[in-house]
Computed example of a mutant assay.
Amino acid sequence: MSTDIDRLLHIMARLRDPGRGCPWDVKQTFATIAPYTVEEAYEVADAIDRGDFDDLRDELGDLLLQVVFHARMAEEQGRFDFRDVVASICDKMERRHPHVFGDASVEDAEAQTVAWEEHKRREREGKGEDRSVLAGIGRGLAEWQRATKLQQRAARVGFDWPGIEPVIAKLHEEIDEVREELEAGADRDRLEDEIGDVLFVCVNLARHARVDFGAALRRANHKFERRFRRMEQLAAADGVDLATLALEQQDAYWDRAKAEEKSRSE
């Protein structure tokens, strides 16, 4: 395994070599590579969602390459290298799992989650960092993930809805406010603010229903794509270009696509 890792580190060093490397790799920076890192993480999640383990193997390799890329750039600046990254995560995992690597004990996974966050809080305090219960929530997260984490953190100190019904009521309230702003001809900032409130409550609704918001949205995206592609197929079979049809006619194809799915599931 170490030989394979060393090979990968050598490949990245060669790619970044100013004299003999790849021009594209040489000119990259932390900022330009960051979007690719995020994209590769989503590709890993997509492979898992599809249950494609051959693809998952490849996507994990792509994600590992991103870690090696960032570490190489840091090494070139004399900041740290890949081995420092590995040592750092090893130290952190041992430190935050005293019930595994020490004498502490936890009752279950939920208790471990609470303990994990407490370890993180103490570490931040030890560094003199932000002591807010909301501290440490990354701003590089997808916004729905950040919303979930903000809500979870606030809930730990009791700032949370007592059940799902008040969340549903709040969702209706926020939708009504959007409607009022639209009717009043509100500007983009006002609409962005009110629609943002709707989305934040939707994340809260998913959390209270114990549904992963990202998984639910992925399912909705897949469903829409599947049905829309079937609409195109049905229209083509009728010798019709979907784009030339009125909305009512397009809706008819949508209904046919839905009906086909329903009949297959019965």
Score class of each variant (00 low, 15 high):
253 Y>T: 03
175 I>C: 10
111 A>L: 10
173 E>S: 10
143 E>H: 10
127 K>E: 11
92 K>M: 14
251 D>A: 12
175 I>E: 03
197 D>M: 11
249 Q>V: 09
82 F>H: 08
127 K>Y: 09
79 R>V: 12
76 E>Y: 06
228 F>N: 11
75 E>C: 00
260 E>I: 15
78 G>A: 01
146 R>E: 04
84 D>R: 09
124 R>D: 08
155 A>P: 04
263 S>E: 13
262 K>H: 07
262 K>S: 10
140 G>T: 14
264 R>D: 07
189 D>F: 14
113 T>V: 11
177 E>G: 05
33 I>H: 03
225 E>D: 12
136 G>D: 06
256 R>L: 15
184 A>D: 15
244 T>N: 07
238 D>V: 01
196 G>Y: 04
80 F>C: 14
190 R>L: 11
49 D>Q: 07
141 L>T: 08
9 L>H: 05
43 E>V: 01
192 E>W: 06
77 Q>Y: 03
155 A>L: 01
61 G>L: 13
155 A>V: 02
137 I>L: 12
15 L>M: 10
92 K>T: 06
177 E>Y: 13
133 V>S: 02
36 Y>I: 11
124 R>P: 01
260 E>W: 09
219 R>L: 11
59 E>P: 04
32 T>Q: 07
114 V>S: 01
48 I>A: 03
244 T>Y: 04
53 F>L: 15
255 D>V: 13
10 H>K: 14
187 D>K: 03
104 A>L: 09
141 L>R: 06
50 R>S: 11
155 A>D: 04
264 R>V: 09
132 S>Q: 08
158 G>N: 05
41 A>T: 09
204 N>W: 03
136 G>H: 11
189 D>C: 05
60 L>G: 00
247 L>G: 04
211 V>K: 01
216 A>N: 01
231 M>L: 00
62 D>I: 05
247 L>H: 12
240 V>W: 02
120 K>Q: 07
51 G>I: 12
18 P>S: 02
56 L>W: 07
154 A>K: 12
72 R>C: 10
109 A>T: 02
50 R>A: 15
132 S>F: 05
211 V>H: 07
82 F>R: 04
1 M>V: 08
250 Q>D: 04
69 F>Y: 13
252 A>D: 05
11 I>R: 15
24 W>F: 13
71 A>K: 00
110 E>T: 09
34 A>G: 05
232 E>Q: 13
178 V>N: 00
